[in-house]
């Protein structure tokens, strides 16, 4: 094994997305839309299973919005 913590990587990735979409008029919607468009459901599920530890508040809100807008199962 490479020793890579893939969940930690997902946390880093979504926080990075947040930092780059903060200037959008609706950052939460923008992050949710981006994840919906480019992440596989399995990655979203893995991040949801991880919980909110280390996640930017916008990312947490985006994951919630993702479930509401796009039907990704919560939790």
């Amino acid at each position: 094994m490479s020793g890579v913590d893939t969940t930690a990587k997902l946390v880093r990735m979504i926080n990075q997305i947040v930092r780059n979409l903060l200037h959008d008029k609706d950052p939460v919607g923008a992050v949710a839309g981006h994840v919906h468009a480019f992440w596989s459901p399995r990655m979203v599920q893995q991040l949801r299973a991880h919980g909110s530890d280390g996640l930017d508040p916008v990312a947490i809100a985006a994951l919630e919005r993702l479930g509401q807008d796009h039907g990704h199962a919560a939790g």
Partner: peptide
């Protein structure tokens, strides 16, 4: 490293 572009990896 495994750092990557925020939008596309």
């Amino acid at each position: 490293t495994d750092n990557s572009d925020w939008a596309t990896n």
